[in-house]
Design a protein around this nucleic acid. Structure first.
Length: 470
DNA sequence: TCGTGCTATTTTTG
DNA sequence: CAAAAATAGCACGA
């Protein structure tokens, strides 16, 4: 958003939020509400049922035709369905970009599959939320924050991984740095009583492991009677309670329920120089809005993985999380407000990320020594890239080939340097733990190889690949 | 079709 | 009784 508003307070947006955010939307006349809605569902149902058919038609008509007729700009026409036109010649063909468009097409989640998974997941989440609100004391105020690739429309291949953070608001807390790279913190109460007092350690900080254990028990309680759901074994240092759900004949769904503390205060000093880079890309106003939303802390152990570093004893702490901001800026990723909207120009930022995630998944499947790399590395690389190539015209949909090449070169650069700063905490190097120099170099070489040879690996398989989270 | 943000409306609260 | 919070319904975008 090119800073056009100069309003100081973010709250001041209330009078015209829709317009401010998206002028296009403002065009469509809003249907004035009809009859006041009655209490009972039955009555509501009847009213809608009677009046629905007519209205639906009115609204859909103009849309249908345009949607059906107009070719979606970013899809290559010849490649369109995958089922019809695509020849399975494994040679590198004349248009090297073709394989990219084809691959994107094949990574797209099928509507029916998505629908099935969504309903299963939503039922489960609703059940957990109800349980937390009604049957627990310390988790009764949780809110569900849907995050991760599925909810960012970046999930590829199968709708089989979902992330939901259940956030507990905390007030009057003292956030203290824990460790030296700015990613970990401990949380203490300033004064007064709080419903989380029972998790206090001897040093008056909230015990991450204690709270997570309790949280896990509550989740366990309420999914116990569900036959299709089972709990994955607790992994040390993992902030999520992972549920494995067997859908009807489909791939099992893994649903991460993450405990998070919601902190509504200004961001810690270690965030400086991180999100500030979006100024040129998205504007300072957007940055302010994001910062205003606060941040989250998820239970995570510090000091695990590498035992080499002496002196740092493994103690539990909270890791800072900006999942909500990631989601927000990825869904609203254009320098222009109309980027990727019907009336605007389509870009390929998200397609590039999907391809990178896919490539990484394939390379990992091929070589176990790359297991430490994860999709968050890919996402972070894209965020950095968006800050250096800030204009929407730098990411024209038709230039997918070039943009992807460039993004891969970026990634190779990070790997060769052994340095990929966390986008929000620049001093936190995502390649610092468990990524030895050798595996970084290896991955960089493999990517370069693919990039220079027309991505043979994309030709080989379109099988299901998924990248596990850190 | 799902997910989200927005508005109007109803319900609760001070 | 007014203000604030909760809820319902709708319109997009993906």
């Amino acid at each position: 958003m090119s800073g056009r508003g100069k309003s100081q307070s973010v709250r001041a947006k209330s009078p015209e939020p829709a317009h401010a955010k998206n002028p296009v939307r403002a065009k469509s006349a809003r249907q004035p509400p009809k009859e006041p809605v009655k209490d009972t569902k039955k009555e509501t149902q009847q009213i809608t049922d009677e009046s629905k058919p007519k209205k639906t038609k009115e609204f859909k008509q103009p849309k249908l035709t345009t949607e059906e007729k107009a070719p979606v700009p970013h899809k290559c026409v010849e490649v369109k369905t995958g089922s019809r036109m695509v020849k399975k010649g494994h040679s590198v063909d004349s248009n090297p970009n073709k394989i990219l468009f084809t691959t994107i097409d094949q990574l797209t989640i099928k509507k029916k599959h998505k629908s099935e998974s969504a309903s299963i997941v939503n039922d489960t989440v609703k059940r957990i939320m109800d349980h937390m609100k009604k049957c627990t004391e310390c988790f009764k105020d949780v809110n569900a924050l849907r995050t991760g690739s599925y909810y960012e429309n970046l999930k590829i291949s199968n709708p089989d991984e979902f992330d939901v953070m259940l956030t507990v608001p905390v007030e009057r807390v003292d956030i203290r740095l824990f460790g030296d790279d700015g990613a970990f913190y401990s949380v203490a109460f300033k004064r007064g009583k709080h419903s989380l007092d029972r998790f206090l350690d001897e040093d008056n900080t909230i015990s991450a492991s204690g709270m997570l254990t309790e949280f896990r028990n509550e989740v366990k309680k309420c999914v116990k009677i569900l036959k299709d759901v089972r709990l994955e074994k607790k992994k040390k240092g993992c902030p999520a309670v992972t549920l494995l759900i067997n859908g009807t004949g489909t791939v099992p769904i893994s649903l991460d329920i993450v405990l998070g503390l919601e902190v509504r205060s200004s961001w810690p000093p270690f965030t400086q120089g991180g999100i500030d880079k979006i100024d040129i890309w998205l504007g300072t106003k957007v940055k302010k809005e994001q910062k205003f939303k606060g941040y989250y802390l998820v239970p995570k152990y510090e000091g695990k993985g590498t035992v080499e570093r002496e002196g740092v004893c493994a103690r539990d702490a909270w890791r800072i999380s900006f999942s909500h901001v990631e989601k927000s800026i990825l869904t609203n990723h254009g320098s222009q407000k109309t980027c990727c909207e019907a009336s605007g120009t389509r870009c390929c930022r998200k397609d590039c990320l999907k391809l990178l995630k896919h490539l990484l998944g394939l390379l990992k499947a091929e070589n176990p020594s790359l297991s430490k790399f994860c999709s968050y590395h890919a996402k972070t690389t894209l965020l950095h890239a968006c800050c250096s190539r800030t204009k929407d015209s730098d990411w024209e949909a038709a230039q997918l080939g070039l943009c992807f090449q460039q993004l891969l070169e970026d990634f190779e650069g990070h790997l060769k340097d052994g340095m990929l700063p966390n986008f929000f905490i620049p001093s936190h190097n995502l390649l610092s733990s468990g990524h030895d120099r050798k595996s970084c170099q290896l991955l960089a070489r493999r990517i370069e190889e693919e990039r220079n040879n027309g991505f043979p690996i994309f030709h080989k398989s379109v099988g299901t690949t998924s990248i596990t989270s850190p």
